[in-house]
Simulated assay, not measured.
Amino acid sequence: MPRPRERVCLQDGLKLDLNRLARKGFVQHGANIGGRGITWTHSYWGEIATGMISADMSGNNEGWFRIQLGSLDQWITLVSRPRHFGGRQWYFLCPIKSRLASVLWKPNGASRFCSRQTLGRQVAYQSQFNDATNRAHGGIARIKSRLIGNLDPDEWDLPPKPKWMRWATYNRYSEQYDRHEDVLDRGCITLAAKFLGK
């Protein structure tokens, strides 16, 4: 049974992922980046917000990140830590808890970005609201996306093993797929029994 929807869904709000911003070129390690436009989109609602970001990561240990979004003008400290095998990893310093975070969230109704741990039990991920049937559908979709490559997903129930994948991994995906299918089959049988009045 899904949890009652008393908490705010994180995925319906805004997300700042520092590693993804670096991969996309919005921020650059060892450089000061001027203002750049950023847009957040939702798979159902389309574009939900636009803003400007700028960052200074030119220092070795510390920098800053600025997000301007409507009336919000938030400055966030950036901190780097050495990696085990060399190089440095950059993190946001949560403005409330002062803890390192790669991702900051601004859920609907929040006044600023902060870490997931700061928000506590006020928020939840979308998957926490799903019932068993929706989780099974999501699981099947994830397995297909990992196996299918450029094939048509509607053409296959369980796609064939990709050439690069080990048999043990493929067999694990196959077992997970079968468990998800069993959940969906039980759901259909239960629904049919209710419909037929048995």
Score class of each variant (00 low, 15 high):
residue 3 R to K: 10
residue 4 P to S: 10
residue 4 P to M: 08
residue 6 E to Q: 07
residue 7 R to N: 03
residue 9 C to D: 07
residue 13 G to V: 00
residue 14 L to V: 05
residue 15 K to Q: 11
residue 21 L to E: 01
residue 22 A to I: 09
residue 24 K to L: 02
residue 25 G to P: 03
residue 25 G to H: 03
residue 26 F to W: 08
residue 28 Q to S: 13
residue 29 H to N: 06
residue 29 H to E: 12
residue 30 G to P: 00
residue 30 G to H: 00
residue 31 A to Q: 14
residue 32 N to P: 05
residue 32 N to Q: 12
residue 33 I to W: 04
residue 33 I to Y: 04
residue 35 G to H: 15
residue 36 R to G: 09
residue 39 T to N: 07
residue 40 W to A: 05
residue 41 T to F: 11
residue 42 H to Q: 08
residue 42 H to M: 05
residue 44 Y to K: 10
residue 45 W to V: 06
residue 47 E to H: 06
residue 48 I to M: 00
residue 50 T to K: 04
residue 54 S to G: 02
residue 55 A to D: 07
residue 56 D to V: 01
residue 57 M to W: 08
residue 58 S to A: 07
residue 59 G to I: 10
residue 59 G to L: 08
residue 61 N to I: 08
residue 62 E to G: 08
residue 63 G to Q: 13
residue 63 G to W: 12
residue 63 G to H: 06
residue 64 W to R: 11
residue 66 R to A: 13
residue 66 R to H: 15
residue 67 I to A: 11
residue 67 I to E: 09
residue 69 L to M: 11
residue 69 L to I: 11
residue 71 S to K: 14
residue 71 S to T: 15
residue 73 D to Y: 10
residue 74 Q to K: 06
residue 75 W to M: 15
residue 75 W to A: 11
residue 75 W to L: 14
residue 77 T to Q: 06
residue 79 V to I: 05
residue 79 V to F: 01
residue 80 S to M: 04
residue 80 S to N: 01
residue 83 R to T: 03
residue 83 R to Q: 06
residue 86 G to M: 02
residue 86 G to K: 00
residue 88 R to Q: 02
residue 89 Q to F: 03
residue 90 W to H: 12
residue 94 C to P: 09
residue 95 P to T: 05
residue 97 K to F: 04
residue 97 K to C: 11
residue 97 K to G: 10
residue 98 S to Q: 12
residue 99 R to G: 06
residue 99 R to A: 04
residue 103 V to T: 12
residue 104 L to C: 05
residue 108 N to R: 15
residue 109 G to Y: 15
residue 113 F to R: 03
residue 116 R to W: 00
residue 116 R to S: 03
residue 116 R to L: 06
residue 117 Q to G: 06
residue 118 T to N: 13
residue 120 G to F: 10
residue 120 G to L: 08
residue 121 R to A: 15
residue 123 V to D: 04
residue 123 V to K: 04
residue 124 A to R: 15
residue 128 Q to S: 08
residue 128 Q to I: 03
residue 128 Q to T: 05
residue 130 N to T: 05
residue 130 N to K: 03
residue 132 A to I: 13
residue 132 A to F: 08
residue 136 A to Y: 01
residue 139 G to T: 10
residue 144 K to S: 02
residue 144 K to T: 07
residue 144 K to L: 03
residue 145 S to R: 14
residue 146 R to N: 13
residue 146 R to C: 09
residue 148 I to Q: 09
residue 151 L to K: 14
residue 152 D to N: 15
residue 152 D to T: 08
residue 153 P to G: 05
residue 153 P to F: 10
residue 155 E to N: 05
residue 157 D to G: 10
residue 158 L to F: 13
residue 158 L to G: 04
residue 159 P to V: 02
residue 160 P to H: 14
residue 160 P to Y: 12
residue 161 K to P: 02
residue 162 P to Q: 04
residue 164 W to Q: 15
residue 164 W to A: 13
residue 168 A to C: 13
residue 168 A to H: 12
residue 169 T to A: 12
residue 170 Y to D: 02
residue 170 Y to S: 03
residue 171 N to P: 05
residue 172 R to Q: 07
residue 172 R to M: 06
residue 173 Y to C: 13
residue 175 E to Q: 13
residue 175 E to L: 07
residue 177 Y to G: 01
residue 177 Y to A: 01
residue 177 Y to H: 07
residue 180 H to F: 00
residue 183 V to S: 00
residue 184 L to W: 00
residue 184 L to R: 00
residue 185 D to S: 13
residue 185 D to C: 11
residue 186 R to T: 02
residue 189 I to Y: 13
residue 192 A to F: 10
residue 192 A to L: 15
residue 193 A to T: 09
residue 193 A to C: 07
residue 194 K to Q: 09
residue 198 K to Q: 13
residue 198 K to D: 10
